[in-house]
């Protein structure tokens, strides 16, 4: 579904991504792991057309989207739930969800809002509340809910467990697995190695803007040098 070949990119003159190649098939959960500063978020933002690619190629559903605008990428169904949630703090929960279908999934807006409330009942209790006043966990739910409103074909989740209580982390990973069971393809970018590997079918490890490992979670966990060098476990 998503194919990345030799992708280089970064900010201004600074190259952050140094030739990334990976692929994600339909229905997979793929984990991208790596420490802070490895280039994971830059990779996401390059895929979404927010940070320009220097060279290489990104194909989504067979179409070249390397230099597409971010609007076209969302319209194609490649949707990111960003690190730090990036919800609209001055808008209500309901308005945040509505804007999730600004470009895509507009026809089924009402239906999808009901679906999000079924997944996150707590959001349903706070429809008219300003998003900025939600707790961290609720904000994360809203960010994921807003992402789902765009009827993603591939959902990128950037650090969805960051800053959540252990109980909520459990809940979020449960949800990711459930969404995947319903057929959603997921690219999971995480520092939470244990939980991610428990639900991912395949994993990539990034370091200094390059991929240093590709394989199954089992292979990664069996490789103690790799674990120690890059994941700190």
């Amino acid at each position: 579904m998503l194919e990345i070949r030799g992708l280089r990119g970064g900010y201004g003159q600074v190259e952050v991504l140094r030739g990334i190649s990976m692929s994600i098939g339909a229905g997979e959960i793929v984990a991208v792991l790596g420490s802070n500063g490895a280039g994971k978020s830059t990779l996401n933002n390059t895929l979404c057309g927010i940070v320009p690619a220097f060279s290489g190629q990104v194909r989504f559903d067979g179409h070249d989207v390397t230099r597409s605008r971010y609007t076209d990428i969302v319209a194609a169904g490649l949707i990111q739930v960003p690190e730090g949630r990036r919800i609209f703090p001055n808008l209500t929960v309901l308005e945040n969800l509505a804007l999730g279908s600004y470009l895509r999934g507009r026809a089924k807006r009402e239906q999808n809002i009901e679906r999000v409330f079924a997944i996150f009942p707590r959001l349903g209790e706070r429809v008219a509340q300003r998003a900025g006043t939600l707790s961290g966990g609720e904000q994360q739910m809203l960010a994921i809910g807003r992402g789902l409103m765009g009827e993603p074909r591939l959902l990128i989740l950037d650090e969805p467990s960051l800053g959540l209580s252990p109980l909520l982390v459990e809940e979020v990973f449960d949800l990711i697995r459930r969404l995947n069971d319903e057929g959603l393809t997921i690219l999971l970018v995480e520092q939470n190695v244990g939980q991610s590997l428990a639900i991912a079918g395949r994993a990539f490890v990034m370091e200094n803007g390059a991929i240093v490992f590709t394989g199954t979670p089992g292979e990664l966990l069996a490789n103690s040098d790799l674990k120690r060098a890059y994941l700190g476990i």
Binding site: C48, I50, Y70, T71, I73, V74, A75, I79, Q80, P82, R85, R86, I87, F88, P89, N90, L91, E95, A98, L99, G100, Y102, L103, R104, R146, M149, G150
Partner: peptide
């Protein structure tokens, strides 16, 4: 939706881009 997008961008440009505004 235009009004919501205007208010959304006022506070969170990056998030706005990610929903395709």
């Amino acid at each position: 939706d235009l009004g919501r997008a205007i208010r959304a961008i006022a506070k969170e440009r990056h998030g706005a881009k990610l929903v395709g505004i």
